[in-house]
Simulated scan of single mutants.
Amino acid sequence: MQHSLALHPGQGPIRSATYLPADPSAVLWGRLPCATDSPVLTIDAGTEVTIDTISHEGVLEDQGRDPVAFFGGFGVRREDVLLDAIALAASDRPRDPTIDGPHVVTGPIHVRGAVPGDLLAITVLETLPRVPYGVVSNRHGRGALPGEYPLDAGTVSVFAAVDGEHGTLPRVLGGAHSVRFPLAPFLGIMGVAVAGGSRPHSVPPGAHGGNIDINLLTVGSTLYLPVQVAGALAYVGDPHFAQGDGEVALTAMEASLRATLRFDVLSEADALEQFGRQVGPLAETADLLIPTGLSPDLDEAVQNCVRAAIGLLQARYGMDAAHAYAYLSAATDFNISQVVDLVKGAHARIRKGDFHD
């Protein structure tokens, strides 16, 4: 067998002493964890965990549920198809494609000491591509132009190769020329379990996080999520190599990642002091505070984002609401996270450097 270019389970670099592979017993497919789910891993707050994630592209029913054959059709060698993706596709892991989502999520992870009212902080320390390729898909009834694309019947899956720190895909089917774009790997899904005994669908994001698809959540970023159940029951998935704001075709460059994350807990008192009362996901990078807004209506998603940003500026920097509103209009970009996940998302880019006295 030739040397594999893939990071199969347990092989290659594993940064953390705590490692969670994505074998079928450690993932959910199409649904997100709820309070009654049992953790697949229990850790102390502050622990770093290296987690394998599996892209749903190549394992779905409309792609044959046979990743070896699917990726082989694009010239990928069998040894470069992930063994855990093959195992998942061949498993009896429950998923009903008529009512469940497509995403594979690894977890849940119980974080000791996390209780409702706290914020769970998930910091991205490393994202390693597990394969040298990805897929961008468009399906009927989905995407920003559901009545116009795909042009023909069936699912369109565009293969994208990795070329160093860039992705490439053909400009036209069968053409010799390609388009090249930078890679910026991140996890589209990071979340906490919801209260109760019903698992949420994997597609729409919410206060629990989930499929928020914010492309700023690359290495060095932190996502804060309001804890809903004891232990938080965190999970991750929907790995991307690259995504534009909006994710208009339905998916971006979907491809499996090995991510190392640190899980911290902010007490309710500390969270209120630093961020105010947050009712949904909030992100942070070295330079930015990134409040979010979610709604099935894009206008309402932006409005919710503006409200979250005003509250954040009041709590963090002592601004009054009128001046916070004025500052946001003068100095802050509001971006569309995605428009394809049933619940649409917006996020703001507040520069922390503007508030250094």
Rank of each mutant, 00 (worst) to 15 (best):
Y224M: 06
N335V: 14
D213P: 01
R78T: 15
L183E: 01
A161V: 06
V131S: 04
P97C: 10
P67N: 13
L257W: 05
D341R: 14
T260W: 00
R15M: 05
G311R: 08
P204G: 12
H103L: 08
A308Q: 07
D213C: 09
L120P: 05
S329D: 15
V111E: 13
A87N: 10
E126G: 06
A255E: 04
D52G: 04
L120I: 14
V49L: 13
A315P: 04
F334N: 06
C34T: 07
H347T: 07
G293E: 10
L183T: 00
V115T: 15
T251F: 00
A26C: 12
A269I: 11
A69L: 14
Y317G: 00
T98I: 09
Y19D: 01
G209R: 08
V124C: 10
V302S: 08
R31E: 07
G276E: 12
I109P: 02
L119E: 09
P200L: 04
G12V: 01
A326C: 02
G345V: 04
V115Y: 07
G280F: 01
H56K: 00
S329Q: 11
V227A: 15
S198T: 14
L60V: 04
R130S: 06
D96S: 10
P239T: 01
S157R: 09
T218F: 03
A26D: 07
V59N: 08
A230E: 15
D66C: 10
V49H: 07
L169A: 12
H110F: 07
Q63V: 09
T50D: 14
G276K: 02
Y149F: 09
L7G: 06
T106R: 11
A207M: 06
L173Y: 12
